[in-house]
Simulated scan of single mutants.
Amino acid sequence: MNVMNFGPLLKKARIGAGLSQEELAPQMFLPRSTISKLENDKMEIKASDLIRWFQETQVPEVAVALLCGVDVIAVSQLITSLLGGFINFL
C-alpha cells in the first residue's frame, strides 16, 4: 500500500491561509508541536484531523480531491511550474 506524506501539503495550506503554527494549533485542538510533527511527516495525521486542517485553512476542495484519489501534490507542482513558465514568458 502506498503511504502518502501529507506534510508539504499541510504546510502549504497553512501558509496559504496566512496562519502560523501557533495560530493554527488552537483551531485544530492540537499542540503546536504536533502541528510541526505533522508538517514534517514525523507523525501520521488522522483522517478527521486532515479534513479539519483543510477546513481551517479554507481549502476544503483539497480534502475532496484527496478522497477522490487525486494526487494533489503532483497537480500543485504542475500548476506551479506552468504558472512560473507563463510568468517568465510574459
Rank of each mutant, 00 (worst) to 15 (best):
M1F: 14
M1W: 08
N2R: 08
N2G: 11
V3R: 06
M4A: 13
N5M: 14
F6N: 09
F6I: 08
F6S: 10
P8I: 14
L10V: 12
L10E: 13
K12R: 15
K12Q: 15
A13H: 15
A13D: 15
A13C: 14
R14W: 13
I15D: 09
I15E: 15
G16L: 14
G16A: 13
A17P: 08
S20Y: 11
S20K: 10
S20W: 10
S20H: 13
Q21S: 08
Q21A: 15
E22M: 12
L24N: 07
Q27H: 04
M28I: 03
M28P: 06
M28R: 09
L30M: 15
P31E: 10
S33Y: 04
T34Y: 03
T34L: 08
T34C: 04
T34M: 02
I35N: 04
I35D: 05
I35F: 07
S36Q: 15
S36R: 09
S36W: 11
S36K: 07
K37N: 09
L38P: 04
E39I: 05
E39C: 02
K42Y: 06
K42S: 14
I45Y: 02
I45G: 04
K46N: 08
A47L: 13
A47W: 09
A47D: 14
S48K: 07
D49S: 13
D49E: 14
L50Q: 01
L50P: 03
L50C: 00
L50H: 01
L50W: 03
I51G: 05
I51L: 05
R52F: 08
W53D: 02
Q55R: 06
Q55V: 06
Q55C: 03
Q58Y: 12
V59D: 10
V59A: 12
V59P: 04
P60R: 09
P60H: 12
P60E: 11
P60W: 07
E61G: 02
E61V: 02
V62Q: 06
A65M: 04
A65T: 03
A65Y: 00
L66E: 07
L66V: 01
L67Q: 02
G69R: 04
G69M: 03
G69L: 01
G69W: 00
V70D: 01
V70R: 00
V70G: 00
V70F: 01
V70N: 00
D71S: 06
V72P: 02
I73G: 07
I73C: 07
I73A: 08
V75K: 06
V75P: 00
V75T: 12
S76E: 09
S76W: 05
Q77G: 08
Q77K: 09
Q77P: 05
Q77I: 10
L78I: 02
L78E: 01
I79D: 15
I79E: 10
T80L: 07
T80C: 01
S81A: 05
L82C: 01
L83S: 00
L83R: 06
L83W: 05
L83V: 06
G84Q: 09
G85R: 11
F86W: 06
F86K: 07
F86C: 01
F86M: 09
N88A: 13
F89N: 11
L90R: 14
